[in-house]
Design a protein around this nucleic acid. Sequence first.
DNA 1: CACTTTCGTTGGATCGATTCAAATTTGCTT
DNA 2: AAGCAAATTTGAATCGATCCAACGAAAGTG
Lengths: 358, 358
Amino acid sequence: MASLTVGNRRPVRLADIAKAAGVSHGTASNVFSRPEIVREEVRERVKAAAEAMGYGGPDPKGRLLRAGKVNAIGVATAEPLSYFFDDPFARVMMAGISQACDATGAGISLVSAANNEQLAWNIQSALVDGFIVFCIEGGSRLVQLARERKLPFVALDLASEDGSVATIGIDNVAGAAMAARHLTGLGHRRFAVLALQFVDGRTGPVSPEQVQTAVYAGTRDRLTGYFQELSRVGVDTSKVPVYETANDATSTIAALEAIFGVAEPPTAILAMSDRMALVALEWLSARKLKVPDDISIVGFDGVPEAAVSEPPLTTVAQPIAEIGRLAVKAILENDGTTNRRQLPVELIVRASSAPPRG
Amino acid sequence: MASLTVGNRRPVRLADIAKAAGVSHGTASNVFSRPEIVREEVRERVKAAAEAMGYGGPDPKGRLLRAGKVNAIGVATAEPLSYFFDDPFARVMMAGISQACDATGAGISLVSAANNEQLAWNIQSALVDGFIVFCIEGGSRLVQLARERKLPFVALDLASEDGSVATIGIDNVAGAAMAARHLTGLGHRRFAVLALQFVDGRTGPVSPEQVQTAVYAGTRDRLTGYFQELSRVGVDTSKVPVYETANDATSTIAALEAIFGVAEPPTAILAMSDRMALVALEWLSARKLKVPDDISIVGFDGVPEAAVSEPPLTTVAQPIAEIGRLAVKAILENDGTTNRRQLPVELIVRASSAPPRG
DNA sequence: CACTTTCGTTGGATCGATTCAAATTTGCTT
DNA sequence: AAGCAAATTTGAATCGATCCAACGAAAGTG
């Protein structure tokens, strides 16, 4: 009864119970980690001592230092932590990561931070065996920090030029091309593009020169894919409005207002994310514009929400969960080689796209 | 250039660079943790040595042992890890937890496991400062394991008798009573209850005797609240069918089939979770039963999905995110006292409840 | 009975850092 | 140039375990 953890502290270590039980710390350690090699009588004595002193088992802090492996992978992002539970894309990704972790018995540590400095510290001091880096925003900074930890890591969603960072992603050019070809095939010739970030922290219309200086290669590649197909049917891509958003409702709506505030609005919208496409769907519906009768929309990502929207969204589906699974695998089976994988995408045609009116 | 991390291992420690730079480890350590107290010339020399040897900064494993604090809280459940990203209730809760962690700079470790043995090990070896225990299923076992770690922990969603475990929850009796009173007030007199688990691993009809032996006090309390109000208007609660489910679609549908497979089905359903209520909504709609014209339903929890269902769901809303925030606070500010808090619930009346026909 | 095995136990070394009292150096005063 | 305070640096101790070579005792063998 004297063992009721008292308010202040619990300075009871393995060595303490070893002494109490009259054995060496080596034996005491064995009682917990390899009980079968210690004589039953001794084992019981040590366990009794542990019980009596309120010892909660070997402290993982100590074990960790000796063992080296944490058995957990860190998932890092520059967004607030709640991003992992809010964002549909992140959630599907995390489901894939979870699945792979469950299968191997590894834990997941969520790493993030409000400000830059805190983020650096958190990444430096995260107790993990490797990182999966979500490069939504501030990707390059994150990658830089992760690299400094000198732990295995893979970057997701970042088609970086830098061949030295391991990435798992998709063929953005091909995916975007599929979306555009679908719409041109239906007969559309007037387009607008809702783009993800080319560089951090900017939103609004994007000029062709600005595209050249894109930090996010994924964004640039998708635009390349779109334009490649539009050019093929003779669309003058320099006249196609491209609006950069922060992939949130506010900036997407601002883009939509600009896009539809002109004399001859587009008949089709190419959105670089389902999130933007879904925002567009709602915005158009509020304005009594019918999708797909008045406007066709094709999204990108293939999040579950896209299947149940009104109308269901035509989109370029990434194998999101699979990417997550592979990322975990890449880290746990890290052999020092930097893996760069591209997974196939798939065009899922639903009700948000149809031939243009007339 | 010789610093390119080679495939195999990286045995470069702080002591190595101290030697290389010709300073003691004490000084080398200071260069990283309190750079301002070491002379610039020395600081630069050490940093240069670190750079040259490919040192990725002080290993948190070592620091941890010395410092004692991990600066992360563990969230434990007996469900698979993906539960955190799938389940609406869990997601809102995690959002609250995330928010509190973001604010204090703490990290989140997700702890879970497929099998029992693995779960025990994972809890024993989780590198965290405390646990938040999700008691959905296998709650008592989880609490037992968490307690053995002798770390601060709070149990969520478990109105345990055991006064020695810290919990943050709601007044289940009062919440349930609000739901029932709402329906009796509308004139309903024929009810059925979709119940959460009374004990682990059982589903199906529940007899009054079985209710007495409930492991989950929360489930029992909600039933008590329901029955209290039903009795008040003269309903014979011993005749009210109560079906226990695993809070998933399969067992809920089984319950619904039993409930509506009788001559005089109920006019109102009391569901102990929004999840079950939402399943019921869909099931009824598929059977051309109109809610609320034919059947009224009141859920429990107040998840976001309940606001956008067809029809929107009347429900007893818990302050889910707030519970999460408080749980984090309780762990980080743990003063040895076992906190037991009850937060208020609120009845949110939407379109799934109306007076009975005729 | 001497000689191997086998089994259990011991205690020192190690994991990689931080901390702090003491020692040393530097800088200022007079 | 001695005296003293302030600024730096040192190195041993510590955090809490695990590992392993070596050792002692009990059991088995010829």
